[in-house]
Write a protein that binds this DNA or RNA. Structure first.
Lengths: 239, 239
DNA sequence: AGAAATTTTGACCAGTTGGAAAAATGTTAG
DNA sequence: CTAACATTTTTCCAACTGGTCAAAATTTCT
């Protein structure tokens, strides 16, 4: 999943160049090459980001160390710092890339589809993401727990905007009597919560379910339970 | 190391005394006072634990520093270490105290009550805990995200035991046709997830709801939404 | 009050952390 | 082959980390 060809970069332009504060004004309008990024550099960056995801998602930003990330990435710390001069930068990159894919399932909720199957599909997709990208989920959770200091802007704009839009969509369905009337925002929260739970609280889920019920069927059981929940709640069918 | 001569220190009973491994056997049957804990000591410990909760809940174990905790507690680092010689010990105390109160709501679910009102009460109580003790919730979440390295035993025994018991209770209600049939474990997970979400992802919830809908009514809206969800799901009433 | 115990402080330490500098080692185009 | 650039390694550092210790300040007990 890391292989990308991309167009051939004409010139290297490392990533480190200490242009930290020296060229603050120079960068403002200098027409110099905006660092094209060679294929090799992209690869290494991907390796680093992959390792960083592994570490950040478990320990959070403060708790993770560059040494740890470097070790997981299989390179020396200074070498890693050559590609990402700042710890923060690695984290920012991860979060930015994450948020985009993270919201994709919600974006796909289609106003022209059948309400129930749209919602069911959304839950499915979110559940699949929790299963297939648990580290991303935990990275996100970690950031939230800390008060989202590094991404407050993103969630206040991109995320809020998308949720507002989909909340309107849900409201429309409610107005048409196609789904029960509830607060669409809290409905979305509940979907987020129930699905991401399986990634973020994985240890707990495993521990409680015990060794017997922990195979691949775990997610199927979860999907069924959530489907029943969102479809009928706990009301028995025969009443 | 840790040479302990001490002049006339027969039984000062501070809290620090490095009795880590030195008096393993001595403590076994020595009739000396088993650290009575003066009122003042208890007070200071509480201040420290309160401060530690504040810091640990945001940054996790690794990300939190003793200096930070000491500052929040309003005392010097060595002074803090006089009461809790180890960082880990503070954390362990917090977690131990937490887990007990955290599971209380589930314990209260009564098999003799009406299924629906029992479940509704449980959700209410959990939601109230998320509202009134968000730091505890985040501390717990942080520990889970990290794989629960420090409390695996507790969740594998106490927590699993309790959930097993309540799952049986729920199954009983299902057998009697009083509530719809679903996987009781995943049902409990969903309740945990939806309620704790409001503590753990507080920033996100606030950001999405915007300034208008963020007052005290927030939790009321959540409660109503969850009640609707667990009672009827999204099925419209008129069908 | 005065002795004894408890609590607090300041100085200090060894190990870790994020990061800088520069030298050493590739790699590649001419 | 070699200049010019890209990458990696070595060395180093100042700030921070969890923690120690003895002395000083304070409280407690008689």
């Amino acid at each position: 999943m890391t292989s990308k060809k991309l167009k051939a970069a004409d010139h290297p332009t490392p990533v480190s160049r200490r242009q930290h504060k020296a060229d603050a004004k120079a960068a403002a309008h200098s027409p110099t090459k905006p660092r094209p990024l060679t294929r090799i550099q992209k690869e290494k960056q991907d390796i680093i980001l992959e390792a960083a995801l592994e570490v950040f998602s478990v320990h959070g930003f403060r708790g993770a160390t560059i040494d740890q990330i470097a070790e997981v990435a299989g390179m020396s710390k200074p070498n890693l710092l050559y590609y990402f001069p700042k710890k923060e930068e690695i984290h920012r990159r991860l979060i930015a890339a994450l948020l985009d894919t993270w919201l994709a399932p919600l974006r796909e909720m289609d106003e022209n589809g059948d309400p129930f199957s749209e919602i069911r599909s959304y839950i499915r997709r979110k559940l699949e993401m929790a299963r297939d990208f648990p580290r991303e989920s935990r990275l996100f959770a970690n950031e939230m727990l800390q008060g989202a200091p590094r991404i407050s802007e993103m969630i206040e704009v991109d995320l809020k905007g998308l949720v507002d839009e989909k909340a309107r969509l849900l409201m429309g369905w409610m107005d048409e009597g196609k789904i029960a009337r509830t607060d669409p925002y809290h409905l979305i929260f509940s979907i987020w919560a129930t699905t991401q739970h399986y990634a973020d609280f994985d240890v707990q889920v495993r521990a409680v379910l015990g060794p017997g019920r922990n195979g691949e069927g775990r997610f199927e059981d979860a999907a069924r339970t959530l489907e029943q929940l969102y479809l009928h709640g706990l009301t028995p069918r025969n009443r």
